[in-house]
């Protein structure tokens, strides 16, 4: 699919260039159609139309205030009480942006990790186990197993396996963020949304986090908002460039970084603005 339409804005011509993923090995698992987000009367996101292939990493990049976080947070309805979101969010053929959807059940399929690590004031074990217990998993053996697998998948197991009963608040920033990932995948989602997960981390922790994400895409579809262009280039298959509430360009990551079709994208990825 190839869309190339001109949007007239004042006297400046803005071009859009959107190529939706079309890879038979990675069927589309999530897509948005005509998504608009309003904060009160102010429109923060205009017609977000993106499709995401399963088991791939998609990076959302763009300057501050470009609408990428707003878009991401709409995908699992975290904006419900904050903003008005119109349009369709199709997840495995179901529009999850309608009032009848059980939003709590949906969020267990579409998990989220935030910018600042937000471990709960509980033990490492309970951070992961307590949401499972709430949903009826009470078998100690089963819980132990899920905690271990989740921590292993998040590459944290070896560092904390002897300290599972210690407070999660004592973890370093990088460890805490990986605990948050473990917590998110423990409820077995399909899709993992990450909102600048490495922005509060040092370079070493960031590198480890990226390796973890690359491992995780075997099991999950990952959509990540990042300010770090190298990061987007290193880990993602597809990249969407947001600017002023619009998706200006969407294509494979290599295209976006080596051969951008839109002037603004080109300026942004080459560091000329933003």
């Amino acid at each position: 699919m190839f869309i190339n339409n001109d949007v007239t804005k004042g006297t400046v011509m803005q071009e859009r260039h959107v190529v939706q993923p079309n890879d038979p090995g990675h069927p589309i698992i999530l897509s948005t159609e005509d998504l608009h987000v309003f904060y009160g009367k102010k429109e923060a996101l205009f017609e977000g139309d993106l499709q995401f292939g399963s088991n791939q990493i998609t990076a959302l990049i763009g300057p501050s205030g470009s609408g990428k976080s707003t878009y991401l947070r709409s995908l699992n309805r975290m904006n419900d009480r904050i903003a008005t979101v119109t349009g369709k969010i199709m997840y495995r053929g179901v529009d999850i942006n309608q009032p009848a959807i059980d939003v709590y059940e949906m969020r267990r399929r579409v998990g989220m990790v935030f910018q600042r690590p937000n471990p709960f004031a509980k033990s490492i074990y309970d951070n992961i186990a307590f949401a499972l217990r709430l949903r009826g998993t009470t078998d100690k053996h089963e819980l132990d197993e899920i905690v271990e697998t989740s921590l292993k998948q998040a590459a944290l197991w070896d560092q904390v396996k002897d300290d599972l009963n210690k407070s999660a608040l004592a973890l370093s920033g990088g460890q805490a963020q990986r605990l948050c990932i473990a917590r998110a995948i423990a409820v077995k989602p399909d899709i993992l949304l990450l909102d600048e997960p490495a922005s509060a981390l040092d370079p070493v922790s960031t590198g480890q986090l990226e390796d973890t994400l690359l491992d995780l895409k075997q099991h999950y579809t990952i959509i990540i908002v990042t300010h770090n262009m190298q990061q987007a280039a290193r880990i993602s298959e597809y990249t969407a460039f947001f600017n002023q509430g619009r998706v200006l360009e969407y294509d494979t990551t290599s295209q976006i970084f080596t051969n951008p079709q839109v002037q603004v994208t080109s300026d942004y990825v080459s560091g000329n603005f933003g």
């Binding site: 975290m78 709590y104 059940e105 989220m112 949401a131 998110a184």
Partner: peptide, 25 residues
């Protein structure tokens, strides 16, 4: 922090569960 509440919601907890299981403790 607000992030604690969002963390609970993002795990699929209801607001009430988030308050009673995450915030109040």
């Amino acid at each position: 922090d607000l992030e604690q509440r969002e963390g609970g919601l993002a795990l699929g907890l209801s607001r009430w569960e988030t308050i009673t299981r995450v915030i109040l403790p």
